[in-house]
């Protein structure tokens, strides 16, 4: 019994990987530059922000660090998060042809989207290392932490994705809502601005945002050289949030799963 479950799990994992590969290809199908767009778009956005803040507003280096590096550290995980959530939310609706016609593990569809964004994210992490190297920073042991924060991001994403991807089937508005909230989050999360500019009493509020834990975490990894356990309260809060969020997501998904084929 157990081994047959294992075989099934292995099959599902293989299918997820295969589907995520073809998803990556399909995203930019028809365009000449193809998959390159997946890299060009975030790069341009980073460049715009860098231009506006460093060249335009003459922002000073934050904590004695080149602004571009400081910005990229938070921007890159943010792109991963928003890209995945956007994709995952529509993943089931998009693949209705599978849900309705084939006996299929629908649960892997949000995962497929997260995984295909993950590939692009891996590229950007490498890009980040290269940028640091160009600016004359060497590899440090703290950089290893990026794996931990990657796992944290994916866990957070899973909870949200299962929730939104199943709700959007019944309520189209969820898709627009996710889009809007992501925009909102981009501005309220300290990505291109430092939390230090806020008065002390509001800082606490900002820290409730679980995405802050991730964007700040990437900065700990690459810039401030701090371990995640050095912030035990925030870490504990993040994981509590993530686990509850994941449980809610899975519960909703399981509840609604049997209706998918009827509604789509």
């Amino acid at each position: 019994m157990f081994s047959s479950k294992l075989v099934e799990l292995k099959k599902a994992a293989k299918l997820t990987i295969e589907l995520s590969k073809s998803d990556l290809k399909n995203r930019y199908v028809g365009s000449i530059l193809g998959i390159l767009w997946g890299f060009i778009q975030p790069l341009i956005t980073i460049l715009i922000f860098w231009f506006v803040f460093q060249v335009g507003f003459k922002s000073m280096p934050v904590d004695d660090f080149p602004f571009i590096l400081w910005l990229m550290c938070a921007m890159i995980p943010w792109f991963f998060f928003s890209d995945s959530l956007n994709g995952a939310t529509n993943s089931i609706v998009e693949s209705s042809y599978l849900v309705k016609k084939v006996n299929f593990r629908v649960g892997i569809l949000p995962l497929v989207k997260i995984l295909s964004s993950f590939y692009i994210h891996i590229f950007f992490i490498i890009f980040l290392f290269i940028m640091f190297f160009i600016y004359g920073y060497n590899f440090s042991i703290y950089n290893i932490q990026v794996i931990y924060y990657l796992i944290a991001t994916v866990m957070l994403l899973l909870g949200f994705s299962y929730l939104t991807s199943s709700l959007v089937i019944f309520l189209k508005d969820v898709g627009h809502l996710v889009n809007m909230l992501l925009q909102f989050c981009f501005w309220i999360t300290p990505i291109f601005w430092s939390l230090d500019i806020l008065p002390e009493k509001y800082m606490f509020l900002m820290k409730l945002n679980p995405i802050y834990y991730i964007t700040e975490g990437y900065r700990y990894t690459f810039i401030y050289e701090q371990w995640f356990w050095e912030k035990p309260n925030l870490t504990l809060y993040f994981w509590l949030f993530t686990i509850v969020n994941l449980l809610i997501g899975l519960f909703v998904f399981k509840k609604l799963r049997s209706h998918f084929a009827d509604v789509l």
Binding site: L15, E18, L19, S22, N26, V29, S95, Y97, L98, K101, V102, F104
Partner: peptide, 18 residues
């Protein structure tokens, strides 16, 4: 279970994967 956006050939592989 064909993806309408993909070509026939791609869908052959997709079905196989599934």
């Amino acid at each position: 279970g064909f993806n309408p956006e993909q070509t026939g050939l791609q869908n052959i592989y997709l079905s196989g994967t599934i």
